[in-house]
């Protein structure tokens, strides 16, 4: 069954690179750990504002964190 939300992300990889837990990322972004968990698992599609906040927390461009299923991720 195709995913309802074709938005992919590399939050888990970026968290591992920064050695952050979901709770730590949630703290930096100002949301609950659950929200980060659902965004990371592509269950919840974040708003543009939240997506930008997450990218800011990792100090990368938003396209490096999120991309559409039909497009290859930026390296």
């Amino acid at each position: 069954m195709p995913d309802a939300y074709p938005l992919r992300n590399r939050i888990k990889v970026l968290r591992a690179e920064h050695d952050w837990t979901q709770a730590e990322l949630a703290s930096r972004v100002g949301v609950t750990r659950k929200t980060i968990n659902t965004v990371e698992r592509a269950i919840y599609v974040p708003s543009t504002i939240l997506a930008l906040r997450i990218a800011n927390a990792f100090d990368v461009r938003v396209e490096r964190v999120f991309w559409l299923d039909e497009e290859p991720p930026l390296g």
Binding site: A23, E24, G30
Partner: peptide, 22 residues
């Protein structure tokens, strides 16, 4: 301050948040 720092929760606050959520 970086823009995202306005939303910064300390680890303690995150614990409180999780606790209150539960």
């Amino acid at each position: 301050r970086r823009p995202d720092q306005r939303y910064d929760l300390t680890s303690r606050k995150q614990e409180i948040t999780d606790h209150l959520d539960r």
